[in-house]
C-alpha cells in the first residue's frame, strides 16, 4: 500500500516522516473533537498501520520512530479523553454478570440503522460505498484483537483464541473472514486489495478502526478492547442478515452475500463467547477491568451511531444534490 495523501498538517507531518522528507516540528494536536477530524484520524491511522502491514517503500524501522510515537501519544490521549467524556453519562444496566450487561447493552442500541437502509432502499452506488468504506475495517478483521491475546491468561485467553480461530477460518484459508470480505469486494466489482480505499475513507470510518487499534495496542486498555469486541459481535448477526437481503434485492452476486451470510451464523455464536467467556472470565480474574470493559462497549455503541449517521448524511445529501 502507498502512503496516503495528506489531509491536513498532522497527516502531512506523518507522511513526511514516512517518505523521508524533513518534517520539521510536529504540529499541535487540536483541542476539538477528533472523531470527525479526518486529518487527525488519518495521521493516527498511519501510525497504527506501521504495526499491521506497513507501506510500500517505507522503512520497517518507522514502526518505532520516536517522533511518530510521540505524536501518537498526544493524539491517543486527546482521543481517549474525548471518548471517555461522551460515554461518561451513559446508562449501564445493573446486573452483576458483566456478560449479561454487555448483551443487554447491545440489545438496547437504538441509533439509526444502516442495515435497514441497505436492506430496503439503498441504491447500488450506496451499497458499493458501504462495502468500500467498511473494507478499511474488514480487510484486517480480527487483527487488532490478536495483539490482545498475549495480554490475557487462563479462561479468557482460551476463549479469545477460540474466537480468533473461527474468525481466521478454522484451519481453512478460504474461510478467513478478511478473505471472504476481499472475495465480496471482488465479486461486487470493487478493488479487494488491502488499503485500496484509504484515500476515500471518511474521518468516522478511520476513527472506527482507530479505536480498535488504540484499545488493542495499549495493554492498559485491554478491557476496553474486549468490551468493544463484545458489542461489535452482538450487533452483527441481525444487521448482516439485512445487508445480505439488500444485496439480493440489488442483484449482487452470491459471493458478495457469502461474507454476510457467514456472519449471520458466526456472530450469533461469537456474541456469547465474547460477552461471557472472554469478558466474563476476564473480569472474574481481574475485577478492576470491569469499568474499562463497559467503557469499550459504550465506545463501540457510540461509534456505531456515528458510522450510521456518516453514511446516512452522505447519502441523503447526494439525494438533495441529485433532485
Amino acid at each position: 500500500m502507498q502512503v496516503p495523501h495528506a489531509r491536513g498538517p498532522l497527516s502531512a507531518w506523518v507522511r513526511d516522516v514516512l517518505v523521508g522528507v524533513d518534517p520539521g516540528h510536529a504540529p499541535d494536536v487540536p483541542e476539538d473533537a477528533l472523531t470527525g477530524n479526518e486529518d487527525a484520524q488519518l495521521a493516527l491511522w498511519m501510525t497504527y498501520e506501521l504495526h499491521y502491514r506497513g507501506f510500500d517503500d517505507v522503512s520497517p524501522d518507522a514502526e518505532w520512530d520516536l517522533g511518530i510515537l510521540a505524536l501518537r501519544r498526544q493524539l491517543e490521549r486527546r482521543f481517549e479523553e474525548q471518548l471517555r467524556a461522551v460515554t461518561a453519562s451513559a446508562e449501564v444496566p445493573l446486573d452483576t454478570d458483566v456478560g449479561e450487561v454487555l448483551l443487554d447493552l447491545a440489545q438496547s442500541a437504538d441509533g439509526p440503522s444502516i442495515a435497514l437502509r441497505l436492506q430496503r432502499d439503498a441504491t447500488v452506488d450506496q451499497m458499493r460505498d458501504y462495502l468500500s468504506q467498511r473494507s478499511i475495517v474488514q480487510l484486517k478483521e480480527s487483527d487488532p484483537h490478536s495483539f490482545v491475546l498475549g495480554r490475557l491468561d487462563g479462561a479468557a485467553k482460551v476463549a479469545l483464541a477460540e474466537l480468533q480461530y473461527d474468525e481466521y477460518g478454522g484451519g481453512r484459508p478460504g474461510r478467513l473472514h478478511a478473505a471472504l470480505y476481499a472475495q465480496a469486494l471482488r465479486a461486487a466489482g470493487l478493488d479487494p486489495q488491502y488499503g485500496a480505499y484509504i484515500e476515500q475513507a471518511s474521518a468516522v470510518t478511520l476513527a472506527s478502526v482507530n479505536v480498535m487499534s488504540m484499545f488493542a495496542f495499549n495493554r492498559r486498555l485491554r478491557g476496553a478492547s474486549m468490551g468493544h469486541l463484545a458489542i461489535f459481535e452482538a450487533t452483527s448477526s441481525l444487521p448482516c442478515r439485512r445487508i445480505s437481503r439488500g444485496l439480493e434485492r440489488l442483484g449482487f452476486p452470491e459471493d458478495v452475500r457469502a461474507y454476510f451470510d457467514e456472519h449471520v451464523e458466526a456472530d450469533a455464536v461469537h456474541e456469547h463467547v465474547v460477552a461471557h467467556d472472554i469478558c466474563g472470565c476476564m473480569v472474574a480474574a481481574e475485577p478492576d477491568l470491569r469499568d474499562d470493559v463497559l467503557f469499550g462497549a459504550l465506545v463501540c455503541l457510540h461509534m456505531d451511531d456515528l458510522v450510521a449517521c456518516d453514511f446516512l448524511q452522505r447519502w441523503d445529501s447526494d439525494l438533495q444534490v441529485a433532485s
Binding site: Y165, V264, E265, A268, V269, V273
Partner: peptide
C-alpha cells in the same frame, strides 16, 4: 465446522439447527 456452535432453541431460526439471532 466451528470450535463452538450455537444451536437454536427458540424454534424460529431460518438457518436451523443453528441460531441466527432471530
Amino acid at each position: 465446522t466451528r470450535p463452538v456452535v450455537a444451536v437454536c432453541t427458540c424454534g424460529k431460526s431460518q438457518r436451523k439447527p443453528w441460531c441466527d439471532a432471530t
